[in-house]
Amino acid sequence: MSAQVAQVELAPPPSGPVPYPREFSIQLLTDMVRIRRLEEKCAELYGAGKIRGFLHLYIGEEAVAAGALPALAPGDNVVATYREHGHALVRGMSMNAIMAEMYGKREGCARGRGGSMHLFDSATRLYGGNAIVGGGLPLATGLALAARMQHEDRVTACFFGDGAVAEGAFHESLNLAALWKLPVLFCCENNLYGMGTAIERAESQTDLCAKARSYDMPALSADGMDIVSAYETTKEAVAMIGQGPVFVEYRTYRYRAHSMFDAELYRQKAEVEEWKTRGPIHTFTARLKAEGKLTEEEFLALDARAAAEVAAAVAFAEAGTWEPVEDLLKDVHTP
């Protein structure tokens, strides 16, 4: 069997007009660049031994988080996976708190108890950072249940990968959310691989929207490499939430390894290179430039600002402190 994914024809690179004012367009681009710069630095710091444990990079998939999250309201809930640095950042967590958490420092969002896979932020209603594939779906369903029972106008967006679709938690949660008509936005980041297993080697039905529709919920598919598609589709889905849950598939691609331990024996370099022609950042930058919404100088300036933000976050994490060992047992239970 070829390691090449059975994607017969790769769609052409995202193109076409960007239907937003200049300021919002640049915000979308800036968030993607911030994620990219943050994670490139994380990879470097991992090599330097500053970040340990598991590190799952989102590089290549930035348009999903950077496009989907702006379609939510500040009062909405977000449940994410272990590949969630971008979600935390776009949702509003400071890069300092993220980086310090990855360093394991007390100044991290979870005081160093969670690390890369467990970013939490009550202020922005980010309920983790979940390292069990599919583990967030029942939780999100319950958050939505609480919102509805308390008459709160709140959507719960639950991010998960295509790998989670094979878990029982996916099927049980979609059924329950649809049965009870709960305001959940099921956001499936389909990057075509569950770790090293290509989707057609894991799923009898690779049309993930068809699975969602079988639970009697609307399902939309977005081009996850195109931030316009990610934003527009999410906005459309959120507007449909009133009648119950909605499923959105973001078709995307991970450029880096699954984690830092992955030798990538399961796919060919050519496939990765081919997907890079659809890269979310360079294609969107080109579109903005073509429309006169962005100059090269402006791009370099926003890129430099992102790099400076990363540098400041590294300095913040380096200067951070270790939680005293005497606090080890703190917060197993509420005091």
């Binding site: 029942p138 369903t141 319950g142 958050l143 939505a144 249940l145 919102a147 308390q150 719960t156 049980e172």
Partner: peptide
Amino acid sequence: TPLSELAFVGAGIGAALGGLRP
């Protein structure tokens, strides 16, 4: 609930996080 122990126990966790006492 349906016969979905994983989902309804998890939904209980989510509901508790969301302010209820399930």
